[in-house]
Design a protein around this nucleic acid. Sequence first.
DNA 1: CTGAAAGCGCTTACAG
DNA 2: CTGAAAGCGCTTACAG
Lengths: 324, 324
Amino acid sequence: MENEHHRITSAEVARACGVSRATVSYVLNNDPRQHISPETREKVLEAARLLNYQPFAPARVLRSGYSQLALAVLPFEQVDPLIAGTLKRLQDALSEQGYSLIWHVGLHDLASQVHPSANLAPAVIVSYVDEDNPEANAFIRQFNVPIFPMISPKAREAVGEIQGGYLYERGFRRLVFASPERDDLQSLSEARLEGVRRVCAARKLAPPQVAVIPGTREGAREAVAALLAQAPPPFGLCCYNDEVAIAAMAALADAGVPVPTAVSVIGCDDIPLAQFSIPSLTTVTFSNSYPMDQLAENIIAASQGEPAGEVPPTSLSIVVRASA
Amino acid sequence: MENEHHRITSAEVARACGVSRATVSYVLNNDPRQHISPETREKVLEAARLLNYQPFAPARVLRSGYSQLALAVLPFEQVDPLIAGTLKRLQDALSEQGYSLIWHVGLHDLASQVHPSANLAPAVIVSYVDEDNPEANAFIRQFNVPIFPMISPKAREAVGEIQGGYLYERGFRRLVFASPERDDLQSLSEARLEGVRRVCAARKLAPPQVAVIPGTREGAREAVAALLAQAPPPFGLCCYNDEVAIAAMAALADAGVPVPTAVSVIGCDDIPLAQFSIPSLTTVTFSNSYPMDQLAENIIAASQGEPAGEVPPTSLSIVVRASA
DNA sequence: CTGAAAGCGCTTACAG
DNA sequence: CTGAAAGCGCTTACAG
């Protein structure tokens, strides 16, 4: 490492303007307990600017004992728009309190890899990890900091319940659940299916059939053909999410089955493209009505060692469009 | 902060098994220059496990002088699947070298907020920031570490060129560019439009008209109606990306314009839903053929102070489906 | 109002 | 093979 980067330290700033390192720290951190003369303050700021001084985070964190860093752990490989939107609003709220929010996306072999905690000391984990995923839970626990869960087990099943309930109201007496193929979604998919099962049980319907919809047009076509052979329309199709729903609708179109008359389709998430399917997609949406400032406060409280707060309540609603 | 979290230190591990802190460090880091007896090694590992010892990253980074942490900065608020996929593969390659990859998504007021570098010391920035975005560039420069750019200016315009060239080949002599509304995409959109302009200039066609496609079905319908009034079919529609393309196709369907005959539509990204539009979407895809191991090596080299490496070459190709 | 000094938890020459 | 000691860059009581 010959061209090692020379790090500018607060000592150099202090030397440059003829004060002590303590004074530099007081000025740069705006320490309210210290009264610094305007001239000194100006001198320090000027010197820091000239030298392009950036405090070295690890030293600050080591000495002060805490970092104002929240790490969001997303166990999925793709980031759906809803989560991205929530995290963006959360980030805004956190940054008003001086906290930063970064993301760790995807989950990796715990055993074979270096754990990020070797390089990174968040004060709190904001977790989208399922309760029933032991690997993922071990991963986040290894940070050894409070964990703030962002998904409530109840909401997971509630999606299936509201989908099934809506289609029942629309007159369907047979329900089918369309699930994705991706491994990282199976756990959540199973929870939503469980919600649909409950609707069927409560309404004395036959339990829902399950169709796995592959991610290719050809694959989806075959899966839907197989489904139609087993379960002739009419039926209501509760889909794991909007992507699965749009794939299923394309396959239904390929099979000549009219939506929403023969089969009604309902998705989940209300992704931007949901309005642009043909027909446009009826879907379940999470309105996380929890005020973000409040959420940020709870997360910060968790980061300071209070027991991990409440899961933010989500309220579900249905966006009615043309597909159901 | 009454319930302050007690941090287990290497000194406690050392005390627990009756060795020095140095030995603990040697064992835990598998220092190849030290020969530790198997019994001692076992004792240390056992004690560390029992105490659930996690080394404190800031101390390690401060002392050793480097962190094995790459921070990907994505200036968008949504993360498109292509970037997520690339970063996932990159993360796998980096983690084989002991590096971790985390994401910073979205850009925030530089002035008003605490910069993440106060809490976080990446060794390198992996940047999706445009060259011509001064705010974003200031943001990433403030980390004061090498920056590894992930987008090449050439590839940005090449998308428009390949779209326009393809539609020209298919016989279209009038080209239209469909751009998104979102602010954070304008810069890239303009670059792709520039590529289409070049095709028109080279082929002696009139310059492309531009239609801004809103994110709502109604808005898209109106925008497309306005476009059709100005530019009656046939024409070729080069779209900023697949989402815009699918929105435009829905609006064309609403207007009764047949695709691909009257208007041919081509997108960009090959998102999972591209195969499920009606008709299925022809689109440009980036095959980042760069071997990820190589890319990871370049990034690590950049993190060690070598001048930021080459932009990974991307090759563009067209996935031909039904829309063009 | 300012400065000298301690110490956060770790790694790593160095001495034995 | 193991341990005592230095020092990374910062913040923060404490003394003046």
